[in-house]
């Protein structure tokens, strides 16, 4: 590891030089910097899948079938960890012990304002300033069955994904996404469309589907209640 340490100068790409994929860390495999946002990881993953897919122009003449398969496996493995906040946090901790610069750059979800997710069972408390941390919001919300647009917004921001990004990737009109997050039940499309929208929203920010079901329940209740027109 000593010898490789010298090659690992700051911008992540430099570390990739002359390192076999077996010796690369997950960031190097996906070719993203250590401080990469969630969105950057998504894009890098999609690009990697295109680059090493069957018959892809950029790679077919350099790698044979087995080599390409091995690279894709590595990419899936890296993405599986880096796209999951908790798994990524643990991986970063382990990585920090031998790659100091990976630790010196805090990645977005762990900003001082948000509690590290799933650290010792987070007590459901409000902080002194009255700001409820997003991890606790999830807990409170799910336990009390009150997942609102606000909850979704907090969870999304925690992952560092913008509404624009979700809209671009799902092709859902951004105004609908804004309506979902602002609980504007009256202007939302019919429940049948909402189910699909919420499903895609949840997929993009890797949310648990129960959270979406809870949101849907709230909306359904509103739909079923006698409306004032």
């Amino acid at each position: 590891m000593k010898e490789e340490g010298a090659l690992l100068a700051a911008p992540c790409f430099k570390g990739v030089k002359l390192k076999r994929i077996e010796n690369q860390d997950y960031y190097q495999i996906l070719e993203v910097p250590y401080k990469a946002s969630w969105g950057e990881i998504q894009k890098a993953y999609e690009l990697a899948k295109t680059t090493y897919s069957k018959g892809a122009m950029a790679s077919y003449s350099l790698f044979d079938f087995t080599e390409r398969g091995r690279i894709l496996d590595k990419i899936e493995e890296a993405y599986h960890v880096l796209s999951h906040p908790e798994k990524r946090r643990k991986y970063d901790q382990a990585l920090a012990s031998f790659i100091p610069e990976s630790a010196s750059v805090p990645w977005r979800p762990n900003t001082p304002n948000s509690a590290p997710p799933l650290s010792p069972p987070a007590p459901i408390v409000h902080t002194e300033t009255g700001v409820v941390t997003s991890a606790t919001v999830t807990k409170v919300a799910v336990e009390n069955e009150i997942v609102t647009g606000q909850t979704l917004k907090l969870l999304r921001e925690k992952k560092g994904v913008s509404l624009q990004e979700i809209s671009e990737r799902t092709r859902i009109n951004i105004s609908y996404l804004e309506l979902i997050e602002s609980n504007s039940y009256g202007s939302l499309p019919a429940p049948v469309y909402m189910m699909s929208y919420l499903k895609q929203y949840a997929k993009i920010i890797a949310l648990d589907s129960t959270i979406m079901e809870e949101y849907m329940k709230g909306y359904q209740r509103w739909c079923d209640s006698p409306r004032q027109r």
Partner: peptide, 10 residues
């Protein structure tokens, strides 16, 4: 970008 990746890996 794909070529950049393939060159880095190969």
């Amino acid at each position: 970008f794909s070529m950049r990746s393939a060159c880095a890996k190969y």
